[in-house]
Computed example of a mutant assay.
Amino acid sequence: MPIRFFKIILKTNLKRLKLPNKFARKYGGGLPNQVFLKPPDGTRWKVCLTKKNGQVWFEKGWKEFTQNYSLDHGFLVLFKYEGTTSSSSSSSHFDVLIIDNTALEIDYPSNNGKNSDDDVSVQILKETKKEKLLPSSSHKNMRGEKNVSAASSLSLNWPKEPRAQEVAKKFVSHNPFFTVLIKPYHLTHHLVTIPSLEGYAGKEVKNVKLENGDRLWPVKMLCCNKSYSSRCLSAGWNSFARETELKPGDVCVFELVNMQDLVFKVHVFASQA
């Protein structure tokens, strides 16, 4: 029978997590030195264990897990452990569910239908002449050269919402860009779905930077599904959204200004509400 337990996340256990004493006493001896955490999005997170005086802690790898899913004070994590079925440590894993401080399970960065209205229809648009929305003469393309003309655009997605479409049509850059209408769950669930960036970034997890004003924010970029048809900005997105005071209804244009370091300049168009 699987063993289940939960832990309430506090500020003090975002870097390492102590497993319940009863669980540690009964099953800690059979745990390998590393296990895997498996959330519903299909990913596997390797976490190393520390055992001391009959106690067991998740340590190396736990911090990265909490950052990726933006765990915070008051979150609840449910664990299910089914034991080790072979000598291989890869068979030792904990299935996990994450409940946020609104008492709802989080929207994991996967295409599981929870945010189906946020799916990004990705298509590469041909370069066309468009009305200039922002002065682009000060923008630099990915070779570091200043743009000398605002006559063409390369958009990586076509948003569904009319206001986002309007911004995307008028925005001009010689760099690739995509457009996102900010919705409430982008701010409460600490992630946002974006295009796949096929041809500009590999399929593995990436560390990107979001630029706004004179600041840069490091953000984790994940693949949202096995087909790699979309990605998600996860850990770090919450800080960016909070510190730039994003609000529902704002439209963000993410302009790829440095492909080597994956730096996106984020242009924010305030909500008209």
Rank of each mutant, 00 (worst) to 15 (best):
K126R: 06
S116D: 14
I99V: 15
Y185E: 02
K265Y: 08
V77I: 08
K46Q: 13
K160T: 11
G29I: 10
G144D: 00
T193L: 14
Q55L: 01
Q34N: 11
G113C: 13
F94R: 02
S239Q: 06
L125Q: 11
D41M: 06
L210C: 09
K60P: 08
S121G: 06
D119S: 14
V251R: 04
L14R: 11
S87T: 15
G42E: 09
Y228C: 05
V268Y: 01
G213Y: 03
R231E: 00
K130E: 05
P32S: 13
P159L: 07
W57K: 07
L78F: 08
L78A: 07
G30L: 14
K226A: 12
D41K: 03
E161G: 10
N225P: 07
G83W: 10
K52T: 01
N157E: 15
L134T: 13
Q272H: 07
S121E: 15
L133G: 12
D100Y: 04
K114Q: 15
D95N: 09
L71F: 05
Q272S: 14
G74S: 07
Q34A: 06
V251S: 12
A241S: 10
K80G: 05
K114I: 11
F269Y: 14
V266Q: 09
P159C: 11
L262C: 07
L125D: 13
F36P: 02
K170L: 12
E243S: 04
H186F: 11
V253E: 09
K63I: 04
D41V: 03
S271E: 11
K209G: 00
K38V: 11
E204A: 12
E105F: 12
S152V: 15
V77G: 00
D95V: 04
I8E: 07
N175H: 03
K11H: 13
G54K: 03
R215Y: 02
P20T: 08
A24P: 03
L76H: 00
T66E: 13
I9F: 12
K146Q: 05
T66H: 11
Y27Q: 02
L14N: 14
K183Q: 15
R25M: 08
S230I: 01
T84C: 15
D250A: 06
K22W: 00
D107Y: 04
W57H: 14
K15T: 09
W45A: 03
P20F: 07
D118V: 00
V266D: 08
K114G: 08
G74H: 08
V219G: 13
V219L: 02
S137G: 15
E127I: 13
G83H: 10
P248V: 04
R231A: 02
S149I: 14
Q165E: 13
C252D: 01
F269M: 14
I99H: 03
F240D: 04
K114P: 04
K140P: 07
A150E: 15
Q67G: 00
G236I: 05
F75S: 12
G249M: 12
G113M: 09
I99T: 05
R16T: 11
A241C: 09
P162R: 10
D214S: 10
A241K: 00
P195T: 01
N175R: 01
E211M: 14
H189L: 10
H189P: 05
E255I: 08
Y108F: 08
